[in-house]
Design a protein around this nucleic acid. Sequence first.
DNA 1: GCCCTGACGTGAA
DNA 2: ATTCACGCCAGGG
Length: 127
Amino acid sequence: MKSRNAAPERDHAAICQAVRDIPHGCVASYGEVAARAGLPGRARLVGRVLAMAGSGEALPWHRVLRADGTLAFAPGSRAFREQKRRLAEEDIALVGRRVDLTRHGWQRDLDAELWAPPPARPRGVRT
DNA sequence: GCCCTGACGTGAA
DNA sequence: ATTCACGCCAGGG
């Protein structure tokens, strides 16, 4: 069997769709996008697709970043600033060199649950 | 066909 | 925190 992709055209579409699915104000890693597109392990492919798509497409490519929250471009580079700017428009700011995934990560809720965030709730509020 | 590079991810040293 | 190595796969030389 042709183990690898028999329809690159299809993968491309799946990836683009996955990127479009990222909600406004949220970010997702390349790996997440790939997985969601049904292509686990193909994070690099996502990068290729976005690179070829360019900024001309209607894709919210700026919501895609590395798994650790850093942008995929070199700090200070043209693309870096562009992405940072677009993120800022969605109230997503960089903390140092990275985006706070616990705050903007798309699938953060699952992680958050496992990490059990500090239940600092206002005093007097009975449960 | 081989080798290198890349908008990546993860684990180990 | 940083660096290295590997896995992944598509393009380009």
